[in-house]
């Protein structure tokens, strides 16, 4: 990891393609890999404490994960703020907590967003549900139009 200056953007895709729609985060990163963008991509089953150190080296962070929340467009893209969220119940940390730890430990506050893509099925099976595929395409379109072309991430 380079120490002088910050890298520009990192996208953390969270999920597991062995559990149907839980793989949305990884599959979205697969899509980004084909877009020839100047972004670093990292695949995660879960966010962990060392990700606080990782994102402290970047100006911008995007977390991509499946969500069970009802969304109007099949996905949401929203700002993520550091927060002391204590309700985590596993080894995994929430994006807000990772940001909080990056601030506490490394005194760095990257600009952060969450892309949540709505999923529906979570069993041990490879392959997305049809509805999740549609949501994924919606999210791709939005990302291509508003993020990749307009570079709103660094504005």
């Amino acid at each position: 990891m380079k120490k002088e200056g910050k890298h520009k953007t990192i996208v953390l895709g969270i999920g597991n393609t062995g559990r149907q729609d839980d793989g949305l985060g990884w599959l979205f990163l697969d899509f980004l890999e084909t877009q020839n963008m100047d972004m670093d991509l990292e695949y995660r089953y879960q966010l962990q404490i060392e990700d606080a150190e990782l994102i402290s080296n970047y100006e911008t962070v995007i977390f991509v994960d499946a969500t069970k929340e009802d969304t109007e467009q099949g996905f949401y893209f929203k700002t993520c703020k550091p927060s002391e969220i204590y309700s985590f119940s596993t080894h995994a940390l929430k994006p807000e907590t990772i940001l909080y730890l990056a601030n506490t430990l490394y005194h760095h506050n990257p600009k952060a967003s969450i892309l949540g893509i709505q999923g529906y099925q979570w069993e041990l099976e490879i392959g997305m549900s049809k509805k999740a595929k549609l949501n994924m395409n919606q999210a791709k379109d939005y990302f291509k139009k508003n993020i990749l072309t307009n570079s709103i991430l660094v504005n």
Binding site: I14, G15, N16, G18, R19, D21, D22, Y45, Q46, D65, A66, T67, K68, E69, S89, T90, A92, I114, G116, G119, W122
Partner: peptide, 11 residues
């Protein structure tokens, strides 16, 4: 046995 962890919800 919990690699499923979609945002906002855990099995």
């Amino acid at each position: 046995s919990c690699a499923t962890h979609a945002l906002g919800q855990m099995p």
